[in-house]
């Protein structure tokens, strides 16, 4: 089995994995970081979104071995001391979630979007979230949360 070394939420990790192990399986089952969700097998829902060297990717559509040498951030990495990050707080304030299943992926995607474009317009937020599906909210409050979270992160 190939051995991989990577950084997850700032922590250096070395483990053996099978070639076929998906990054999301490694995160959830090996590292027990279950904030990253699996919502589909067609690479469409975005619930599994994490950051790979700062960029949003679907961790269900990547092998764990491909993350060798990379820096991964999961939703747990946003609140290391248990205090909500401003984007998480904005989702709470704006009721940007109902069941919460899509929320970790939404927030990880939103954080990457805001890192690339700190002052996005509503249209840019809607386009930016095209890879994340929510079956509950109708998106309205998610968009409001991302706009407000972006503002909070700027200040």
């Amino acid at each position: 089995m190939p051995e991989i070394s990577l950084t997850v939420n700032g922590e250096q990790i070395t483990k053996s994995v099978e070639g076929r192990t998906l990054l999301v399986e490694f995160i959830r089952e090996t590292l027990k970081l279950t904030g990253t969700h699996i919502g589909c097998d067609t690479s469409q829902c975005g619930a599994c979104t994490v950051h790979l060297n700062g960029k949003a990717v679907k961790s269900c559509t990547m092998l764990a071995v491909q993350a060798d040498g990379a820096e991964i951030t999961t939703i747990e990495g946003l609140a290391p001391d248990g205090r909500l990050n401003p984007m998480q707080q904005a989702f709470k304030d704006h009721h940007g979630l109902q069941c919460g299943f899509c929320t970790p992926g939404m927030i990880m995607r939103a954080m990457a979007l805001v890192a690339e474009n700190p002052e996005p317009t509503e249209t840019e937020v809607r386009h930016g979230l095209e890879g994340n599906i929510c079956r509950c909210t109708g998106y309205q409050n998610i968009v409001a949360a991302v706009l407000d979270g972006a503002k909070a992160l700027r200040s």
Binding site: S43, A56, K58, T61, R109, G128, G131
Partner: peptide, 9 residues
């Protein structure tokens, strides 16, 4: 093409 996550890979 696709969405932002797909375009990153």
């Amino acid at each position: 093409i696709g969405d932002a996550q797909v375009r990153n890979r």
